[in-house]
Design a protein around this nucleic acid. Structure first.
Length: 524
RNA sequence: GGCAGAGUAGCUCAGGGGUAGAGCAGAGGACUCAUAAGCCUUUGGUCGGGAGUUCAAAUCUCCCCUCUGCCA
């Protein structure tokens, strides 16, 4: 089977990462880990978009070279992914020479195929913002606002990509491929945008205006501008043209393409990912079957408002991971949003999800189960042949959780996947109260039953510690450690069946998995 | 103005033709293995409004209202 190839958007290295960056990478990481446990070979690519005007300006302001500036910001991202246990297989940095070679090769091919042309554009240009202005930027009185500074009329030559040649193909493709965009209803936005847009795409900037970019191989007075640099990371780091470009350490492109999921935010669906990208691939000769799939996630708002620097409500994932542990944050980010929808970020709910669910629900269940097993049996499990309806009911809950979990996760409904696994936690907590192992321990006649209860708890918890491992890799590894069960190499969800723990299994010592946090005041 | 999403319990949200669901918050209770955790019971909603289709509508259709986003 083809490896599961998943990517995220590459982040622009102009400022430090916020919670939205973290959400997207964790989402992709969870899916990558899920697919691995589900038996697929996985290639997970993420990275940073490092070229462009803003970086060039910010670097100048900071008195650094663009590369130095970009390297500094990039470290913020890689350090955060390290901290949040985002484990990628490929790192797409657009200043990587291997990437630059592929971009140039692509541009040369399109140039040779007549897909690029040079054209002169005359218009109003903002010196301060270094960009051409359109009528959109005009105020109601027809003048340009103060923020644009000095506006001059300017004529400039640039290279264009014949986007309009492929619009009809794209419309037909979208209509005949409903799985191209998840969630499917977003396809209407794209078709909407395609109506009446016969514009070609400007892909260059004169080198005097922008030097921090990839030079056009056929016209070195220009540097590539944005999309042929940024979007192409999905193929350049997947091994596209690797041989022609002399790129080593790349995946075998024909094996892993097309991508099973380009995980992106809804802000960059139209036009870049749903219009430019498929058309770029189509122009390069990719067939319909080689067009990747897009997974569009929503945004975390803060108290109903968009997160923005000017509102001062930017959430810092690094600090949250310190307070709630990386897995506590990952859990919240996955359980409190439906993939594709927006959600409201809330301190109260983050604290609740950690203290009530992770600490009080799952963590306490592990702790009380192990504690009793140690207190009554020295931590050794025994198979006794005792069984009853209560035991059978718990086994059934465990058995039913797996298919529900897998189906939810495959459909990107991570919150439903968590809920499916959580049914085991809820049932097991109730199971303790109904079977009362602490009472059974006082009655020697109930010895066999006590053993069966302790076994059922430990076994059920082992299943939970596998199912939730894509969401909380570190904490679930600790849980398995406490359970004394090491997941065999190459263990897959399909290997989950009752009886992972053997007769005579020795449990580890209990230690609070998610220590309860005393937080009174919600943090800002 | 067009398109999309949302409008369901005090709060956050799930569900999506067949007696209204979860978590949190509130109330009461029993228990004690445990991270002052967990368990049981319970209060609480004419599912934005109106009309229609149907034996049956929160769910489908149409109209309208409010919020959000994108586009013009």
């Amino acid at each position: 089977m083809k490896p599961y190839y998943i990517t995220t958007a590459i982040d622009y290295t102009n400022a430090a990462p916020h919670i939205g960056h973290a959400y997207e990478k964790v989402l992709a990481d969870v899916m990558a880990r899920f697919q691995r446990k589900n038996g697929r070979e996985v290639y997970f690519l993420t990275g940073v978009d490092q070229h462009g005007q803003k970086v060039q300006k910010s670097a100048e302001k900071a008195g650094l070279s663009p590369q130095e500036f970009v390297d500094g910001i990039t470290e913020h991202f890689t350090a955060l992914w390290e901290k949040l246990n985002v484990r990628y297989d490929g790192w797409a940095a657009t200043t990587d020479d291997r990437h630059k070679r592929v971009v140039q090769a692509i541009l040369q091919r399109l140039h040779d195929a007549g897909q690029l042309y040079k054209k002169s554009h005359k218009g109003f240009y903002s010196v301060r913002q270094e960009q051409f202005l359109t009528d959109k930027e005009r105020g109601p009185d027809g003048t340009f606002a103060e923020e644009w500074g000095e506006v001059v009329e300017l004529e400039e030559e640039n290279w264009y990509f014949r986007l309009s040649d492929h619009v009809d193909w794209l419309k037909a493709f979208i209509q005949s491929h409903p799985s191209f965009i998840f969630p499917a209803n977003r396809a209407k936005d794209v078709l909407n945008a395609l109506e009446g847009s016969g514009q070609d795409l400007c892909i260059s900037r004169p080198i005097e205006r922008l030097s921090w970019g990839i030079p056009l191989p056929f016209d070195p007075r220009f540097v590539n501008y944005v999309w042929f640099d940024a979007l192409t990371n999905y193929i350049s780091f997947a091994g596209y043209l690797a041989e022609d470009c002399g790129n080593d350490l790349m995946p075998e492109f024909s094996r892993i393409w097309p991508a099973d999921a380009h995980v992106i935010g809804k802000d960059i669906l139209v036009p870049p990912h749903a219009v430019y990208w498929p058309i770029m691939l189509h122009a390069l000769g990719f067939t319909d079957a080689q067009i990747p799939q897009l997974v569009v996630h929503g945004w975390w708002n803060v108290k109903g408002a968009k997160m923005s620097k000017s509102l001062g409500n930017v959430i810092n994932p690094d600090a949250l991971a310190d307070t709630f542990t990386p897995d506590g944050l990952r859990y919240y980010l996955m359980r409190d949003i439906a993939t594709g929808q927006d959600s409201d970020f809330s301190d109260e709910r983050l604290i609740m999800s950690y203290n009530k669910e992770l600490a009080g629900g799952l963590g306490n269940l592990l702790n009380r189960s192990l504690n009793m097993a140690h207190k009554y049996r020295g931590g050794t499990l025994a198979a006794t042949g005792y069984d009853d309806a209560e035991n059978a009911a718990l086994r059934q809950t465990v058995a039913e959780a797996l298919p529900a979990y897998i189906s939810a996760m495959n459909g990107w409904a991570i919150h439903d996947g968590i809920a499916a696994a959580w049914k085991i936690v809820t049932h097991a907590n109730a199971f303790v109260d109904s079977t009362k192992p602490f009472s059974l321990a006082k009655d020697p006649a109930q010895s066999a039953r006590l053993d069966s209860v302790l076994y059922h708890l430990a076994e059920a918890l082992t299943h939970v510690a596998v199912l939730l491992s894509p969401i909380m890799p570190e904490a679930m590894a600790k849980a398995r450690d406490q359970l004394g069960w090491e997941m065999p190499a190459g263990f897959h969800f399909s290997d989950l069946s009752w009886g992972l723990l053997a007769d005579g299994h020795q449990l580890g010592s209990p230690q609070p998995l998610f220590p309860r946090l005393e937080i009174e005041t919600p943090m800002a």
